[in-house]
Each structure stands twice: as structure tokens, then as C-alpha cells.
Amino acid sequence: MHELGIVFYIIRDVKEVARENNVDKVKTVVMDIGEVSTIIPDYLTDCWRWAADKEDLLRGCELKINTTPAMTYCEDCGNEYSTAQHGKKCPHCGSDRTYLLRGNEVEIKEIIV
């Protein structure tokens, strides 16, 4: 259900870009999705197929997903480390004064028309 909501947003944005560029058929939509964005790529592509095929502009259009790695920054020792591997606690110094640098994005990178 969560992924379906995201799909509706993607469709809304792609339709707008298509209108601005006078495009009547989109072949591929490329997404950058962070490792810790809570989006499940398989669900997203399933929802995409169902919803996109209802739109003339997007019938048969492929949704391509690039997964971007999540990185966390430690304020105490200044190191960066993989969020998916180590979570909130810094593996270098044990501090939990850390914050996510990137890896929770859900971005439309580009469309191929």
C-alpha cells in the first residue's frame, strides 16, 4: 500500500514533466532509491505496472530502480560508515551521536522518452 502511494506521486510528477516537454510517450522512468528509504523495489515495480498501464502516456513504460547506499556520519570521530551494516552506533568509536548523510532518498532521476 505504501509503495502504491509513492507510485501515484511518481506518475503525477512524470506527467507534469512530459507535459512541459511535449512528450506523449515515456519509455523508461529511472529512480534513485536509498537503501534505508523503506521502499521495497519489487513492490514498487508491481504497483507501477498496475498503475502506469492505466495511463496512455505510461503504458508499457519500464520503472528502473537504482539503489543508492546509505551512509551515516559520526559527530564524535568524524568518520562515515555504512548505515545498513552498523545502524545508529558508530563502528569506529561506539558513539550514537550520528546522523544519516544520505540513503533515504526517493528521487526520480530521469525519464527516457
Binding site: 506521486y9 519509455k27 532518498e105 526520480i108
Partner: peptide, 10 residues
């Protein structure tokens, strides 16, 4: 084939 860059969060 043409690529249109969007780079926009959903």
C-alpha cells in the same frame, strides 16, 4: 530516444 533529467524527490 531522449533522456530528460528530473532529479526530484517524489
Amino acid at each position: 530516444v531522449k533522456v530528460i533529467e528530473i532529479k526530484k524527490s517524489v
